[in-house]
Amino acid sequence: MTTFTLDDMRRIMGGCAGVPETVDLTDDIGEVSFVELGYDSLAVLEMAARIQQQLGIRIPDDAVDEMKSPQAAVDYVNRRLAA
């Protein structure tokens, strides 16, 4: 079964929403909130759209509310993949 890792998430973040000046995406950022990292809600929406396309899964718009941090997003995506 495909799993979605934090590294996959890092690639999505940097690829579609850019890298904040004060952040190194290779750091231990899993539990840091997107807001603290410098990503606003629009950025998270964009990440969700790219994840949907790359993995062929459906992420409803309100699910973005659950994706507060990179790790939370990874956990959410893996739950969807397992469902």
């Binding site: 940097g14 579609c16 929403a17 850019g18 904040p20 000046e21 410098g38 990503y39 629009l42």
Partner: peptide, 8 residues
């Protein structure tokens, strides 16, 4: 342009 700003 800073990366975060450039993408948007």
């Amino acid at each position: 342009v800073p990366s975060r700003l450039a993408v948007q």
